[in-house]
Write a protein that binds this DNA or RNA. Sequence first.
DNA 1: CGATTTTTTGAAAGGAATCAAAGGTGGTGG
DNA 2: CCACCACCTTTGATTCCTTTCAAAAAATCG
Lengths: 252, 252
Amino acid sequence: MGLVAQFAVDYKVPCDRCPLRDCAVFQPLSDGEVDLLSEFKIGEFSVEGGATLFSEGVQSDQLFTVLSGWSFRYKTLSDGRRQIINFILPGDFIGLQSTLDDEMDHSVESLTAASFCTFPRKKLTEFFARSPRLAFDVTWLAAREERVLDEHLLSLGRRTARERAAYYLTHLYIRASEVGLSVEGRVRFPFTQQHLADALGLSLVHTNKILRRLTADGLIEWEHGLFRSPNLGALAELGGFDLEDRRERPLL
Amino acid sequence: MGLVAQFAVDYKVPCDRCPLRDCAVFQPLSDGEVDLLSEFKIGEFSVEGGATLFSEGVQSDQLFTVLSGWSFRYKTLSDGRRQIINFILPGDFIGLQSTLDDEMDHSVESLTAASFCTFPRKKLTEFFARSPRLAFDVTWLAAREERVLDEHLLSLGRRTARERAAYYLTHLYIRASEVGLSVEGRVRFPFTQQHLADALGLSLVHTNKILRRLTADGLIEWEHGLFRSPNLGALAELGGFDLEDRRERPLL
DNA sequence: CGATTTTTTGAAAGGAATCAAAGGTGGTGG
DNA sequence: CCACCACCTTTGATTCCTTTCAAAAAATCG
C-alpha cells in the first residue's frame, strides 16, 4: 500500500478500438473526434490494487480516463477521519478536479489493479481549440460529476443511514453495470465495509448493522465480494434512487 | 414566495464595466475576451427575494452569472426534507449543473433581491469555438465548484456538528468578503438558521444550540442578520478551514 | 401594535458512535 | 494441504450526539 507507483507504458490502444466504446452508456464520437482524442492521448499506465495515484497537495500534470479497475477519491481530516468522495470506475475522466496548475486537495487510491489513458494537461487548451465539441464534453463531464456529488450531499445531509446505504449501493450497482461489470445481475464490489462506511459518512459498526438488516429484509446480498439485489426496485425506492434516469455521457 | 418570476431586462451593463471585475479574487480578462463575453451576453434580469429561479425538473435554456444578491441551490426528498447544496453569491456562474439540454434536478431560490447576466445556452458551443481560453475557464469553474462540494461532503460526512458549523460559517464569510460584501469585518447573512441547518444537514434546534455555543465561546457574533467573527483564526481552525487557500478565479 | 416568523430553551427519545471481542475469510509459507 | 496470521465481518453493550416535541421569548413586518 501507499506506493505511488505510476508505471507508464508506451503501448497505446487506439481510441477507436477502446473496448469501453461498446458500452451503451457512452455517446458515440465521430471518426474525426476519435482521431483527435487518439492524438491527444500520450500513453497508458497501470497500477496494482491499493496504490496511491495522487495524494493531497501533489500536483499532477496529466488527466486520465479510466480503462479498467476500481479506484476511489477521498479527503481526510488532520486526525485521520476519512471521507470517500466517490468511487471511480472505467470510463470516468479524472484529474480535472485538481484545479489545473494547482494542487490536488484530495487523494486517489486504487482498489484493484487498474489502468488509465493519460492526456497531457498542458495541451488541454490546444485540445479545446481543436474541438469545441469535445471541449464541451469535458465541461459536460465536470458538470455531471457535480450532479452526482449533489445527490451524495443530499444523502449525507438528509437521508437516514438506511436510506443512504440503499441509495449508494444502488448507485454503485448501476454504475458498474453500465460499464459492463455485472454478470448475471451480480457485480464484484472490490471494497470493504470500511470503505462503504467512509463513503456514507457512517461508522464501520453501524454500516455493518445496516447492511445486515438490508440483507435480512431481502433487499441486498453481498457475499464473497459479489453484490446483487434480489429486489433492486425496492432498494432504489428505499434510497430514493431514480432508476429511470439513465443518460448517455461522453467518453474521452 | 414561490413565484417563478423572471423579469428580463434589456439593459445591458457592458462586461468591461462590470463592477465585479474590481474584486481582487477575479482574474483579469484581456480586452478581446471581455468583448466576446459581452457579445455572448444577451441580457440581465432581476428577481426579488424569495423567488424560485429554477425548480427541479424544469429546464433552463440560459446560463447565468450572478451580479448581485444571495441565492441558494437545494434538493429535496419526496417527504420534504431539504438539503441546501450551496449558497450562490455574486460572481458565481450557474446553470451548468443542469446537464445542458436536460432538466435541472435541483432548485434555486433567491434569498435577497438579485440580478443576473444571462447567456444563451445554445450558443455555448459557438462560444467555446471562439475562445478556447474562455471555454477553459468555464471548465475550470465547473471543476472548482466540484472542489467546493468535495469539502462540503467531507463536512457532512466526517465533521462533528460544531466543526461543520465553524467550517461553513468561515466559508460563507470568506466568500462574501471576496466579492466585497463585508463592511468592517461584518457580513450581512440574509438567511435564517433554518437555511443554515439545511446546509449543514442538521436540525434547526441543534443548529441553534451550536450557534449559541460558538457565540458563548467568542468565536462568532450573529445578530440582526450581521455576522462577524471575533476570532476568525480560531473559527477556521476549529472547522478545519484553510484561510491561506485563496486563489483567483475567472469571472464570466 | 397585532400577527407572523425566527430564535431560544428544556426535556425526552432515538439513532449512530464507541468500546470490546468473537467469528470468518483469504493469503502465505512451510 | 494445513497452520498461522492479518484483515474483515458480526454482535452485544454502553455512551453520547442529534433529533424530535413543546413552548416560551424575540424580532420582523405592515
